[in-house]
């Protein structure tokens, strides 16, 4: 390797190290400090699991966790039910304006969440709903749609429609074809979309902030309230927990996806 080649190789390494240090140091600092026994948050004195145990006794937090999970499950399911037929339908037809419809299902990604959040609040109030669990689910479903739609679209792009045609040529009913051929083939895309939507819903703060009512607060909204009061070990522990939950789901998702890809390659 030439001198400049070596130098470039080295600068590449340095770049990668700095880049990942920037991405990961805050996360490790946060999780590390959540195990600090001391109350003074940023001075390390010793390892302790206490702050996590205390969270288990926190009724408000447990209620918020239940709301968060309910909303995430419901909106990921609804968004999948909306995105799946749209993605399949758009793939099997061609007409003018098809591309703009395809764009419409991605559009929620291009609107800042604060704008959608206040719009959703004004909207649910104007149709006579009061902020609460139902409005949370309505709002979350809307911004989850593209996250369900895009993986299914990607899966369809590599889809062999002749299998579906073969199935109906062999006198399989439409429902049977859907159940036995189309859906199993699309399953990785559907599952990916569902999981992404689930995480995105779980992590959302701003839409929940505007749409939650008394008694239906999600975990991020609860945490935001605590952060406003101050930096405490309890907040460290909840924030770390939030990070660990999404990181675990992401890694599981990744493993599942690479395995399904390996199966396809075989």
């Amino acid at each position: 390797m030439s001198e400049t080649g070596k130098a470039r190789h080295l600068s590449g390494r340095v770049l990668v190290v700095l880049f990942f240090l920037f991405l990961y140091f805050p996360l490790f600092a946060l999780v590390g400090l959540s195990f600090n026994e001391n109350r003074s948050v940023t001075v390390w004195t010793g390892f302790s699991f206490d702050w996590y145990l205390r969270l288990l006794e926190n009724e408000d937090l447990l209620l918020a966790a239940r709301t968060s999970i309910t909303v995430a499950l419901a909106s990921a399911t609804l968004a999948t039910l909306i995105a799946l037929p749209a993605a399949v339908g758009l793939a099997r037809t061609s007409f003018r304006g098809r591309n703009s419809l395809d764009g419409a299902f991605r559009l929620p990604l291009l609107v800042p969440d604060i704008v959608f959040a206040i719009g959703a609040l004004l909207f649910v109030l104007s149709i006579g709903l009061k902020p609460g669990l139902a409005t949370l689910i309505i709002g979350h479903t809307a911004f989850c749609i593209p996250f369900c739609y895009l993986p299914i679209r990607a899966r369809i792009a590599g889809f062999d429609w002749s299998l579906v045609d073969a199935s109906s040529d062999l006198y399989s009913s439409r429902i049977r074809t859907l159940r036995r051929v189309t859906l199993p083939l699309l399953f990785p895309g559907i599952a990916a979309g569902f999981l992404l939507a689930f995480i995105v819903s779980l992590d959302d703060f701003i839409v929940s902030f505007f749409l939650s009512g008394p008694g239906s607060i999600t975990v991020p909204v609860y945490v935001f309230g605590l952060i406003r009061i101050g930096v405490t070990p309890e907040v460290n522990a909840i924030a770390s927990l939030l990070v660990m939950v999404s990181v675990t789901i992401t890694i599981l998702f990744f493993i599942a996806q690479s395995q399904s890809q390996r199966k396809v390659e075989k």
Partner: peptide, 10 residues
């Protein structure tokens, strides 16, 4: 994918 609020809090 980690929570945005938690990442800013860090």
């Amino acid at each position: 994918w980690a929570n945005l609020l938690a990442r800013n809090y860090a």
